[in-house]
Every structure is written in structure tokens, then in C-alpha cells.
Simulated scan of single mutants.
Amino acid sequence: MSTIERHTPGTVSWVDLMTPDLEGALKFYGSIFGWTFEVGPAELHYYTTCSLGGRRAAGMSKRPEGAAFPSLWSVYFDGEDAAQLAESVRASGGQIMTGPMDVMDFGRMLVASDPTGAVFGVWEPKNHTGAQVIHEPGSMIWHEVNTRDHRKAADFYCRVFGLEARKMEVPGVDYMTLHKGDKTAGGVLQMNEHWPAAIPPHWMAYFAVADVDASIAQVEKLGGKMQVPAFDTPFGRQSVVTDPWGAAFTLMTPSKLPDQSSG
């Protein structure tokens, strides 16, 4: 049970949820992942730290009333200079949506979209260095952008974060992995004709669980829904689910994964 002190710049260091029902989400995710919670003040939209065994695992906050965006999980890349990365996002065809801005003494953040429309964040750490636990049941284990143009998306993230894209041979699927030296930062999946047209490009957060099928049953018991039935891959068994407020995430019981340790 190691504790991560700092993530490799250019890899995903944090995930968080915006939800219309924070109290309900605490009960739902606490039951699914075994998290404990530290709820923040109202002026920070009750931003809550979700911990696993005393280590930061994720965040969540109450979605502002009247917000135009849906309830969703967001991913944040570790960045050493948020302002410089904002310029790189613009120069590479992306758009800045929020920031860069200071978040008290925790760090600096920005929210952006890539040229294909997928939204992501950048976190320049100060006192808050991101997730302290990954790859254990109840913590983040993988991240991928699902997009209508996987080559354009991969090129963008490589330019902005200094990553290397490698094609993964998966029958019937166009998939690339993104690498930062010996670390794996995530994946890029081509959304093909089987994806409903109404689903926009987006980042998907994966969480490790000990038993995918048991976790699906718990999700459904608590009012969530299974969107993609559990299936086996060379890297483990997984399923896409949504919480009771519509935020999608993937449950995964891993058999193996590319090394993406960030310590």
C-alpha cells in the first residue's frame, strides 16, 4: 500500500466528479469504492476529498445550480506550468474553457477541450499533488479519451504534454496508448459507427474493483445503471456504468495493465 508523493508531469494525476446531489453521491461511491470523505466549504462548492485508507483517491463537488454541463467525471493531467500549457493547448488547436487560476494554496488549474471536443483538465500542483493511491481496488486505474478522430486527438496530447503515441493491435478497434518515458498516460479510442451519434467525445475514468460483476450488482442496487455489460479483455474484466445522476465511469478488475505508475 504505497503512497504516491508526486505524479509524472504529462500523466493523469487526478479525477473528480461534479454532481447535482453531493450527499447522495457520497453514499453511492462510499458504498461502491469504500471511500471516506472530507467535505469542503460552501464557497468551494463543498469540494470533497475522497480517500482510501487515508490516501487521496479522487474528488467530488456539488454542481452549481443551473449549470449547463451534465454530471460527469473529469480527468486532470499533471502539469508543471499551467500558463505555459494553456498556450500550448491553443497553439495545438484546443480551446481553454476555464483558467489558468489559483485554487487557494492547493495548486493551479485549467479546463480545456482538445480539437475533437473532449474536455480535460490540467493541475499544476502545490500543496495538493493529486491522487496518492492508484491501481488498488477503489482507486483510479486507467484513463482514455473516446473520440471521433483518434489520430487528431493523439497528436494533440502528444504535442501538449510531450507524449508518444503507440498503436495497440486490438481486433476491430482503432486504439492508441500514450506514453511519457516509461509511464503510460492513457489511451485514445476511435468512436466508430456503433457509438450513438448523441455521445460526444469525452474522457473516461476507470476505477479498479476486486470483482466487476459484484460491483455492477451494487451499482444497480444503489440506483445506478449498467451501460455496457461486463466483458473480458487481455487486461482484465470491465464494464461501463452510470451513477444515479448519469455520470459515466468504468469498473475494471485488472489482470494486467501497461506500467502507468506515477511515483
Rank of each mutant, 00 (worst) to 15 (best):
P70R: 10
A91Y: 01
P229R: 10
S255K: 13
G162T: 10
A217N: 00
T48Q: 08
A91R: 08
F77G: 01
P201I: 12
L178F: 03
G79Y: 00
R159H: 09
R55Y: 09
A185G: 08
F156I: 07
V122P: 03
M104H: 10
V173F: 12
V240R: 11
S31P: 04
E80C: 00
P41H: 00
Q260C: 10
V145K: 02
A42D: 11
M1E: 14
V39W: 01
Y29W: 10
M204N: 11
A198V: 15
R148A: 08
G34A: 00
S13T: 15
P41C: 04
V219P: 01
A205E: 00
A118T: 04
T250G: 01
E144R: 03
Q132Y: 04
D21I: 09
A67R: 05
Q132A: 13
M1Q: 13
V228R: 06
R55T: 12
L52M: 12
P171T: 05
A83L: 04
Y157R: 09
A153C: 06
T253A: 15
V89C: 12
H7R: 04
P115C: 11
G186I: 07
G94K: 00
A82L: 03
F69C: 01
P244Q: 13
K167S: 14
N146Y: 10
R6L: 13
I199E: 07
G53M: 04
P100D: 02
K62T: 14
P229G: 02
M104G: 02
A42V: 13
Q84E: 15
A82R: 05
Q260L: 12
Q190N: 03
